[in-house]
Every structure is written in structure tokens, then in C-alpha cells.
Amino acid sequence: MYEFTYHRASGLRQATNLLGKHEEAKLIAGGQSLLPMMKFRLASPSDLVDLNKIEGLNGIELTSRALVIGALARHAEVHVSPEVQQGIPALAALAGLIGDPAVRHRGTLGGSLANNDPTADYPAAALALGATIVTTKRKIPADEFFAGLFETVLEADEIITKVSFPLPKKAAYQKFRNPASRYAIVGVFVAKRPSEVRVAVTGAGASGAFRVPEFEAALQKRFSPKALDGLSVPAEGLASDIHASAEYRAHLVGVMARRAVAAANG
């Protein structure tokens, strides 16, 4: 790791000020992605602003229309939360598939979304569920939040405070793991919402999570795995590496989407 100055923020205002003051500052929440990057000297923030002691950022609240989860909620908390399990069981299940148990005790929802790793799980859920990301400055629809590999529309001194997930009628997530890193080679989140069906894919895209309009349209007509027969995503533009070619990923998007629909239908 390179040297940096550590700040333990006691409130959002202080954290925002610190971000404004130090150009190369970075927020740290769970740190499960950031610290490994820093250890490899691939990230070199001048300052780390630690959000962990800020109160009120880890609540989980279930209303009649939405599940609202604080940005500091750990994956392990989301996984076992009765509110999440009641409101969006698919999201609780997804949280239980991130990393490993020890990583889930540290990693946070806000951190995962802000990092926007193209193989992370939460971005698929946020897109498919039509989530709204609430920050210190504004409310951002998930469709507008992600901006390419490890990029979001967040401004330098903007901090995610909570995320609101509208309750779907049905939803499920299927993850096909990279056997080494355990991130998603392909993860597909399918949500049947009151107004629409959404299918969001993580792991496969060369520039991050994306939706599949053809699948959504077909499932809108008939929410059944069979509705996806004959449909596929093009391999072109998908990620390709030693673990999965673009063709394989394209194929897996179909397989995981069908399995997700089947799971959502119970």
C-alpha cells in the first residue's frame, strides 16, 4: 500500500467536506474491494475517509411499496434481514452469494454500487428492480447511475446514503461463478414488476451490468422460461477471458435467465 491519511468521519457533512478538501481522497466502507486494490498498489488515494462510524446509514426498512436499505448495510445483514427476506427474498439470496461469509460481514451495499465492478452482483439487482440510489445530493434512478467500468455518475463529494428497491411481484437471481475469483461470470436478475419485466445481467458485459430488452419484452408477454426459447444475446461486445469466451457468456446469459425465471415462478 502507498501511504495515505486516514480520517474517521463522524457524520456525512464531515465526510463530504473531507472529500471536497482532498482531491485524491476516497471513501472506505467495507473496504473489501478497495483494500485489495490498494494492497496491489492499483489504487493510491491520498486520503481515506472511513464511513463506518457514521450512524444511521445501515437501517433496513420495509414499506408497502419499497424496501429501503442503508448504504452501510453489510451483505450479511441484508442476507438475513427479515425485512429483505419478506420484501424481496431474491435480494436476500443475492446478498448471500457475494464473496464469502467473512467478506459479507464487511462489504456494504453502498460500497458495491459505488464501485460498480462489472462482475459484482448488486448492480444487476439495482437495474432489474428499478432501484433508486439516494445520495447526499439527490436521488438517482439505477438506469442512470452506472456509467461504465468502475464508473458511476456520483460526483467527487457525493455519498450514497441509502437505496430504495420498489417491491417486485416476483424476482430471482441466478449466479454462475468464476471458479477462481468467485465473482459472476454471468449473473442474471429477473424481476416481474407491477408495470414491467426487467432482466439485468452482470459479469458478462465488457462495460458493466446491462439490461436485455428482448428478454424483457418476451417475458412481459409470458413470464415463463419458455418465453425465452430461441432468444439469445449477441456475443459481440461481451467480456472474454480465460474463464469464459464471449460466446460462452452469451450462452450462459440465456441459461441463467431461464433458470432465474423458473426460480422466480417458484
Binding site: Y6, P36, D50, P101, A102, R106
Partner: peptide, 24 residues
């Protein structure tokens, strides 16, 4: 942070002590 040889408990839960700063 994959091998788990460094797992300790912090405030009662298992964490990887290689993925947490001492100051945290």
C-alpha cells in the same frame, strides 16, 4: 482476501484481517 488464513472475529463476527485496516 480469498484464502481465509487470516480470519479473526471483530465484534463477534468473522472477518478477513487482511482486508481491514488496523485503524478501522
Amino acid at each position: 482476501s480469498q484464502c481465509g488464513a487470516c480470519v479473526v472475529h471483530v465484534d463477534g463476527v468473522a472477518v478477513k484481517s487482511c482486508a481491514m485496516l488496523a485503524v478501522q
